[in-house]
Write a protein that binds this DNA or RNA. Structure first.
Lengths: 130, 130
DNA sequence: GTCGTGACTTACGTTAACGTCAAGCTTTCT
DNA sequence: AGAAAGCTTGACGTTAACGTAAGTCACGAC
């Protein structure tokens, strides 16, 4: 059940992803499960990585960004410097997200005021206008 | 200069877009400039449409959505019903944008708290951690 | 032994909004 | 006339993250 090794199907149910997704992540070198013959077997480490990947996606990290972050930890364990780099990356992403939210808020305000003005959005069509 | 008719180059400078963009919009039936021989000539109506398209993009409308909205006005002018439909579409988009902003805010909060906890984001890697 | 099931690999398809050549026609400068 | 400029029409390329289909393999059940 919750053995150390899980099949692809168990992984899919546990994380709510498709087999294609897991194979895709593997092709992109984000995960590298064991093999029993031709079949994939996912370890606890794989599950940890997948968890991080999915969390990263919620934060808007691209898979390639996640791969780079994850790889920092393959090269000899998590030392201070690597942790630091991860934190820096996270902070940058946070700033990006905040900028994105601010822009979105501006657009929202603008659109809302257009609507309040009775959709003057369409003024350009009325030959009478301006 | 600011004649009723403008060349593609003048349009590009006026609206800060590339020729490719204008031809692309034309291929997608968002604009339909006149022709003088083989050359395109943009009318005041074209400028009005382009202005709306670009504004729509800022609001996150897809080009296809904008095309549909614009076409409402080609079919016999802007009557009450058409205006109504446009307003409905705009309201829906506004709601979408607000949802999107809310989700973004949640992600921001989550990421920020991760950072405040000293990047426990990486806990999954430490064999020591649960 | 063969049937069904699940896993596997390979590879093309999808979506949006253009970018980037390539090659030809016209007008314009010299 | 010849060349440079600017416009035109194809038509393929790009990016991300998978979806989807086609064909193969292996294994337990019968």
């Amino acid at each position: 059940m919750d053995n150390d090794l899980m099949t692809i199907r168990e992984m899919c149910e546990a994380f709510d992803v498709t087999p294609r997704t897991l194979r895709f992540y593997e092709a992109k070198e984000l995960i590298s499960p064991l093999r029993e013959g031709q079949k994939r077997l996912y370890t606890r480490s794989d599950r940890g990585r997948l968890k991080l990947i999915l969390r990263g996606k919620r934060f808007g990290f691209a898979l390639e960004e996640m791969r780079q972050l994850l790889n920092l930890y393959d090269r000899g364990g998590a030392n201070e410097e690597q942790l630091e780099r991860t934190i820096v990356a996270a902070r940058e992403r946070l700033a990006q997200m905040e900028r994105q939210r601010d822009e979105l808020n501006e657009a929202i305000d603008e659109l809302r005021s257009q609507l309040e003005n009775g959709a003057e959005m369409l003024a350009a069509f009325r030959p009478a206008a301006e």
